[in-house]
Amino acid sequence: MPNYVRDFVFVLLPLLVLLGVLPFFYRNELLLFNFTIYFALAQGLNVIYGFTGYLPFGYVGFFGVGAYGFALAIIHLTTSPALALAIAGLAALVLGVILIPLLRLSGAYFAIANLAAAQAVYHIVSNPDLQDITKGPYGVSLANVFAPRLSYYSALAITALASVVVIWFRNSRFGLALQAIRDDSLSAAMAGIPVVRQRTIAWLLSALIAGLTGGVFAWHISVFYPETAFDISISIFALVFALFGGATTLLGPVIGVLLLYGLYNLIGITIPQYFQLIYGILIVVLVLFLPQGIVSLVSRRGIRVP
């Protein structure tokens, strides 16, 4: 069985089936929805961080733009949710294209510039001067298209899409070339790899995933504010989930979301400061002792992790 089939059958399929049937047995659909969203975001971030090494601190920018793309399409254009989702993805792609020049920056500079870009978009969207267009800081309400079940399964479809991209990257020459670029972009160019084109594709795919996720998020929760959609901790959660499990793998982000977001829901909601405290310590310990994530406990023994 080829590796990509194995990854699909043993990791993605069980996850999709589980998330697909759980709503029939488990009442807290919002919790399931949030898990699904983070599966999608952690894999979307994995696409850019795990395979190209760019650290997108401002990943939430794409998510927020997607959420607002969806909301404004519903409000101003009164489109169907399906078309609004497409517009959400498109909005994130447009932001991704605008930010392509950031890919020239390396290391810390990229991470900081990307964070600044997400903040800038937030300040624009939430500006009271633009109230007629974006509703400014007062938030949007989309009660007329509220459809929890449908939006939940749309989120599941986006998770599937994000995971398929990761499976593709993990088992193809294209993904290998991305990792080569991550390791050494000049060497990669010398090996004939079209460096700029390849990493732009990864960047835009990653942006698209976050934009679609933001759109479906807007659809599902239906009332939200700029600081909800552009909450920097969304970037950070997705990043830490992916890192904790192990970036560059399909399984790593899944494990990260299950364990850490599970932990968050056990203690984080009631006493957020204590969760933040544990979180901070966890990140420090992770970087110092297990920078390749939990899956590296297995993969460093030479066993292939999906």
Partner: peptide, 21 residues
């Protein structure tokens, strides 16, 4: 350089949580 960003992000979370407690 990259890992330092993430590590000190963890330190940041730790400090912020401790301070708000």
């Amino acid at each position: 350089e990259m890992l330092s960003i993430i590590l000190f992000f963890g330190v940041q979370q730790f400090i912020e949580a401790l301070a708000s407690i």
